[in-house]
Design a protein around this nucleic acid. Structure first.
Lengths: 138, 138
DNA sequence: CTAGAACCTGACGTTGACGTCAGAGGCAAG
DNA sequence: CTTGCCTCTGACGTCAACGTCAGGTTCTAG
């Protein structure tokens, strides 16, 4: 026996569903060289199972604010585990950038939390919000 | 004596410099009702000193991914300290959203860190991309 | 075989936060 | 007064990550 479990190759709709993105997004990723696909004789895209993970990684990096240009430079080596010193620097730089972003978000969150706490404790609740803060005194 | 130190009112260029944003951005904020200004007789914008802080708050909220529509609903009450129950829910919701965003960023950061660590330890360096010969790892 | 779902390419539309340019005026210095 | 910088309004340009539509092919269920 072959030992190979033959199943129909994953098409774009299935990948989109499994990865939680739109079909359009996947074609866009391919356009940006973020995601490759084999083609059936009739031209339909075919993906390996691992594509689900890859798409989710792409999403994660997008969510971290990386543009596709940066991602496309990082992805190949990330997948193979091979990396150049230059790329390593880049990865570290992005990690640091994300750290800063986290710090900024934390302070924003804290500021929001203080506002909430203060407002709740003071029970400054139930007034009508002023629609607009007027111009400053001369 | 009046006790009032009269100084020339802050104009848009000065505010832009102090807040670290562009003049265009400030006019855009005004367009979006995020930032008010008094006008001189000749129509030039005048800002109070507190505007610097306000602009920085706006920037912080933008950086947290809030769109101006949301900010414009939150800002007046944030400044006055008064808040409606509805707005309080909104603030909490945004705080929670930011928390999720932080969590997502942390996991992305960790994933990047693992990649960096693994690649560094395995010394999988120098195979694919062209580049200079880097310094040795610590 | 046929209907409908899924897929293809190509191209234009959308959104948000500004950038940039044009043409006209205002303001302090010399 | 003139020079030069700052400011004004208005309007079009940009960029990224897709959405959406058109017009055609392919796959699959009955």
């Amino acid at each position: 026996m072959t030992g190979v479990t033959r199943k129909a190759p994953m098409r774009i709709g299935e990948l989109a569903a499994k990865a939680g993105v739109s079909v359009r997004a996947l074609r866009y990723y391919e356009e940006q060289n973020l995601l490759a696909s084999a083609r059936s004789p009739s031209g339909q895209r075919q993906y390996p199972h691992s594509a689900v993970d890859r798409v989710q990684l792409i999403q994660q990096l997008y969510a971290a604010g990386l543009p596709s240009k940066t991602i496309v430079e990082m992805l190949p080596c990330i997948e193979t585990g091979e990396v150049t010193p230059v790329l390593l620097d880049r990865l570290s730089a992005e990690r640091d950038r994300i750290d800063e972003q986290i710090g900024s978000l934390v302070s924003t969150r804290d500021r929001l939390q203080r506002i909430i706490t203060t407002a709740t404790r003071a029970k400054n609740v139930g007034h009508r919000c002023p629609g607009w803060v007027g111009p400053p005194p001369p």
